[in-house]
Each structure stands twice: as structure tokens, then as C-alpha cells.
């Protein structure tokens, strides 16, 4: 007669093995019949590293942030959450002083300007968010864009804590009821995932520039930072360029340009 203790131990062992087999059986590789092709789409934009340059003085003169923000937020089905504290923002305005530390400004001889600058995800070269994500739900594409996989995100918000630029927003509630006007053919997100600016990847595949660039009246430039002939690369060498929190060493892809001979406004 088997003792109760041995019976329990044996059935536990069999149970675990059984569960393990069941679990592993689900790990079959996807059928080989599914092929996907990289059709060389001539219209799609490609780059070594996508980047953005904000021409600060031009922006101050000719850009309307409310237009830029509304275009971006509408196209991406970003909700308007009634509680301001839990707002979802892909692009925001930040006080000039908040963007660059005093030491930085004095060092490069740029006076304080009275302007609010557009800030969004910097798509850093060595993104802190990508390093800390425990599921690789946020990852860096070969073209430099830091993308989000909303299917995989577990909502731990470590990326939000790690991002030095406060670029990320979390869905504290289901966003769908709070979207003013749903843009068809672009998904929303669901509650419990983190989201952020994606440099309008969906537009890049069609050869279109990001919406903030389009709506900026020429004050925000977009292109390949690795290509010395691109608009952005040429803009960078035409004046002084600052990036936010440079001392952290994550090398943002969003640069703020101050042309020579700027005025004290």
C-alpha cells in the first residue's frame, strides 16, 4: 500500500510533467507555408537613422503648436482623457528653460528665449526604454525609430520610469470612449499599455513625412541623419544644435537648431 506522502509526491511529479508537455506542445514553429516578402516598395522612405530637426526661431515665428498637436493626435486616434493627470500625449509643448539646462545654454552661448518648444519621443540612439523593457515590447528598428509593439506590452511602465524625456504615456483607462473622432484604418490602443510618438511609421511606408513636420510650416525638418546630403544633416551644420539632457548620453534623434546671429527675443 503506497503511503499518502509518496502518492502525493508521485502525482505532483506526473502532474508537472504533464503540464510541461502540454505547454511545450504549443511551441510549434509557425508553418513554413507562410511566406512574407519584402517587396521593394519604391515609395517607402528608408534611412540609416531617421531624425528630426526643430528650427527654433523659425518655429517660434511660423508654427502653431495647437495645429501640430491636433493633426498628430487626430490621425493616431489619441484620446482626450478628462483627467489631465492621466493624459495621453505623443507630442507636447515644453518651456524652453525646461528643455535645456542653464549650464548647457550658457556653455554654447545661447540666451534664454521665450518660446515653448515641441517635444516628443527622441528616438534615441541608445534608448533607455528599450534596454529596460522586460518583453522587448519597445524595440529599436534598424532605421533608428523606436517602435512599440502594443500586442506584447504588459504595462509594467518601466519604460516610462526609464525615459529621461517624459515622452511616454500610459493608458490608465480604455481610450476608445474618449476619442473625439476615430480615424478609420488606424488602430487605437487598449487600456494597460504604454504608447508614444512613432515618427509616423505608417506614413513613412507611403513616402510621406511625419504629420508634425507637415503641419509645422517648414520649421520642423525630417530625414536621414546618416546621410550627409539630407535636409536634416545640412541643417545641423548650419548653426548650433542642442539636444535635451545631452549629458545622459542616449543621443536623441530630435535636435533643436539655433541659427547663427539669433536675436534676443
Amino acid at each position: 500500500m503506497i503511503s499518502r506522502r509518496d502518492f502525493l509526491h508521485t502525482s505532483l511529479a506526473i502532474g508537472c510533467t504533464g503540464l510541461g508537455c502540454v505547454a511545450l506542445s504549443g511551441c510549434s514553429t509557425l508553418s513554413a507555408s507562410i511566406q512574407t516578402g519584402q517587396e521593394k516598395d519604391n515609395t517607402a522612405m528608408s534611412a540609416g537613422r531617421f531624425g528630426l530637426v526643430v528650427d527654433v526661431e523659425k518655429y517660434k515665428k511660423s508654427a502653431s503648436f495647437s495645429l501640430i498637436a491636433s493633426v498628430c493626435h487626430k490621425a493616431h486616434n489619441i484620446p482626450r482623457i478628462p483627467d489631465d493627470k492621466q493624459a495621453i500625449q505623443w507630442i507636447r509643448e515644453a518651456d524652453y528653460k525646461a528643455c535645456f539646462s542653464e549650464a548647457e545654454r550658457q556653455h554654447v552661448g545661447i540666451p534664454s528665449l521665450d518660446v515653448k518648444l515641441p517635444v516628443m519621443c527622441n528616438h534615441c540612439e541608445t534608448p533607455a526604454c528599450v534596454t529596460v523593457c522586460p518583453t522587448q515590447a519597445t524595440f529599436k528598428r534598424p532605421d533608428g525609430i523606436v517602435e512599440m509593439d502594443y500586442h506584447r506590452c504588459i504595462g509594467c511602465r518601466f519604460c516610462m520610469a526609464a525615459c529621461p524625456y517624459d515622452a511616454r504615456s500610459f493608458n490608465f483607462v480604455d481610450p476608445k470612449p474618449y476619442i473625439d473622432q476615430v480615424t478609420p484604418n488606424y488602430p487605437t490602443r487598449t487600456d494597460g499599455v504604454v504608447e508614444k510618438c512613432n515618427f509616423c511609421v505608417e506614413r513613412l511606408t507611403q513616402g510621406l513625412e511625419p504629420l508634425c513636420v507637415e503641419a509645422s510650416g517648414g520649421s520642423i525638418l525630417f530625414g536621414d541623419l546618416d546621410d550627409p546630403t539630407s535636409e536634416v544633416s545640412q541643417a545641423i551644420v548650419s548653426g548650433t544644435v542642442l539636444t535635451r539632457s545631452e549629458e545622459l548620453g542616449v543621443e536623441p534623434g530630435v535636435k533643436y537648431l539655433f541659427r547663427e546671429g539669433h536675436n534676443n527675443d
Binding site: C133, P134, T135, C153, I154, G155, C156, F158, V193
Partner: peptide
Amino acid sequence: IFVDLGQPTRVLNVMLHPSPQSIMF
């Protein structure tokens, strides 16, 4: 940690997609 997650049903993603570069892993 579990009650803090936004999508707790996906928690096994941490094991299905191990990320050794992440200190949380």
C-alpha cells in the same frame, strides 16, 4: 508587481520573450 501591471494576462511574455538586457528580467 502583478497588481501593478496594465496587462497582467500577458505577464508570461516576460518568460516567452526573455530580455537579458533588462534589469527587470
